[in-house]
């Protein structure tokens, strides 16, 4: 059997037609199928949806951390503070006693929040800095020579001698003597 004969044999073996009722049977079957509109989601829409969900998730996960670690970019103004702010006492809320009938509203005192951290400077330091800046602006101090000055300081001995303490030394008397003197003073009075 050669190739053509074989091909013809196979073709002949497969040249079978379905019964005349077959097509009608198939159509009947398909019409009886429950009518469901073909669900077709374009892949671009699906991809866009997934990308959006990922983006939202990323924002939700990473945003709080970033705001916690954010660096304050604006340099706070140098404000001389003469008084140390009073410490704020935060009232602790105790659980109400079971015997008390009238309810009391407890409004907790919260410390006012500031957007920028408070920087404390000694007023004398601030005044010195301000006068230095003013001197540079008025050209009383030659800023171009400052580098040379700082280099010279660095080259010089870096150990700084402690300044002598200005003021009279405090004399502390023994306790017994002090009491005796007090009693004597009381008598004289």
């Amino acid at each position: 059997m050669n190739e053509d004969q074989l091909k013809r044999e196979i073709e002949q073996a497969l040249s079978v037609e379905p019964s005349p009722q077959f097509m009608a049977k198939v159509r009947r079957e398909l019409v009886a199928e429950p009518r469901r509109p073909p669900v077709r989601l374009p892949w671009t829409l699906v991809a866009a949806g997934v990308a959006g969900a990922v983006l939202i998730l990323a924002i939700v996960v990473f945003l709080p951390r970033q705001s916690g670690n954010s660096i304050v970019k604006s340099v706070p103004a140098i404000v001389p503070v003469t008084e140390v702010p009073q410490s704020v006492e935060i009232e602790t809320v105790r659980p109400p006693k079971p015997t008390v009938t009238a309810e009391r509203k407890v409004t907790p005192v919260t410390a006012p929040r500031r957007s920028e951290p408070e920087v404390l400077f000694d007023p004398r330091e601030a005044a010195a800095f301000r006068s230095f800046v003013q001197a540079v602006q008025e050209k009383k101090v030659n800023a171009s020579r400052l580098d040379a000055f700082f280099e010279a300081v660095e080259r010089a001995d870096s150990t700084i001698e402690p300044m002598p303490i200005a003021g009279t030394p405090i004399e502390i008397r023994p306790l017994e003597l002090a009491v005796e003197e007090k009693q004597r003073g009381g008598e004289t009075l």
């Binding site: 077959f22 049977k25 079957e29 073909p38 669900v39």
Partner: peptide, 16 residues
């Protein structure tokens, strides 16, 4: 015919 009909029904369901 039975198998073909079954396959065509499946195809109809998946036509979308």
């Amino acid at each position: 015919e039975d198998v073909a009909q079954e396959a065509l029904t499946k195809a109809y369901r998946k036509r979308g």
